Simulated scan of single mutants.
Amino acid sequence: MTDSTPYLYQGARLRLREFGWRDVHALVQMHRDPRVRAHLADDVPLDDARVAHQFVENMQQFYRQHEGTGIWCAERAHPPEAEVLADALRAHACGEIDAVFLDALVQPRWSFCGWFSLVHLSDDLHTLEIGARLTPQAWGGTLAIDGGEWLLEHAFRTLGQSHVLGHCSPTNRSAAHCLQVLGFQPQGLAPYNGGQALRFGLCQSGWAAWHAQPRRERQRAVLSAGR
C-alpha cells in the first residue's frame, strides 16, 4: 500500500482507508494505552509490534479476498489554529499569497485515531457486524457516529445486507449508547471471541426508518428512553 491509497470514506471530521505498513506503530501505541485495553472484547496482543505487523499483512490479503468488508484505518481532522487561519486570510486579502497557497494553509491536518470494521461473524459467515476502536483522544465527540453511519450505509445499500449486528464489552457504556443512536436494539449478552459481550441488532427496514430522522432527534430519543 502506498500513500496514494484512495479513501473509502471522507467527511469533514473523519476518513477511512485500508491499513498499510506505516500504521503499525500507531496500532501498537493505541493498544498499549490502558484506557483502550480496559474496553476490549478480545485479547489479541496488538501492543506487540510483531502481532501488529502480522495484522496489517492479514488485512491487506483480507481486503482482496473479501471485497467490501474489512477493518479500516481511521484518521481524524485537526482544523488549522485560529491564529494561523487569520494570518492566511489576511495575507491573501493583501495579495501576499495566492488562492492555491491559501487553500493549502487552511486544509486540516489528519492523524490516526483508530479503526472501523465491517466483518462477518466468525461463527456465522452470513452475518456482518460493525465495530470501532478509537484512541482516547478521539473519544467524546461524534467520530464513532460518523463512522458508524457510513458502515451501515455501506452494509445495507452497497452490500445489500438484511441485518447487521454490533457487539461491545458489557462495561463500555459509551459504545452501547453509540450503537443505540445508530438504531441498534439490545439483544442481551452473547458469546463473543471466547468471552461475553453485549449484542445489538439492526435490520434494513429499521435502519431506513431510524436514519430518516435527524441525528439530533435520534440522540434525544435514546436519552429520553433511557435505552
Rank of each mutant, 00 (worst) to 15 (best):
E96T: 10
C168K: 01
S205T: 10
W139Y: 03
R64K: 15
G70I: 01
V100H: 13
P80A: 00
V181R: 07
D3S: 14
G183V: 08
I71Y: 02
C203V: 12
H66M: 08
H120K: 09
L27I: 15
C178R: 06
Q180P: 05
P34E: 07
H163K: 04
W139H: 05
A209E: 09
P108T: 08
D124P: 06
P80I: 07
R109T: 15
R227S: 08
Q219S: 07
T5M: 13
Q29C: 07
L198G: 05
L134C: 01
R37V: 03
A12Q: 09
T2V: 10
Q187L: 14
L121M: 13
V106R: 14
G20F: 06
R216Y: 11
A41I: 14
R76P: 00
V28F: 06
W207N: 04
G11L: 06
A132M: 10
E67W: 02
L223S: 06
L202C: 02
G20W: 06
H31V: 05
Q187W: 11
V56M: 05
V51F: 01
F19G: 00
Q219D: 00
R76K: 12
W150T: 06
C94D: 13
R64L: 15
A86E: 15
D123C: 12
W150I: 08
L134E: 02
S205A: 11
P45A: 12
L182W: 04
Y63N: 03
L134V: 00
E149S: 12
G166E: 09
L102P: 08
C168T: 07
P6S: 07
A86F: 12
C113Q: 02
Q107C: 03
R50Q: 14
I71E: 04
R22F: 08
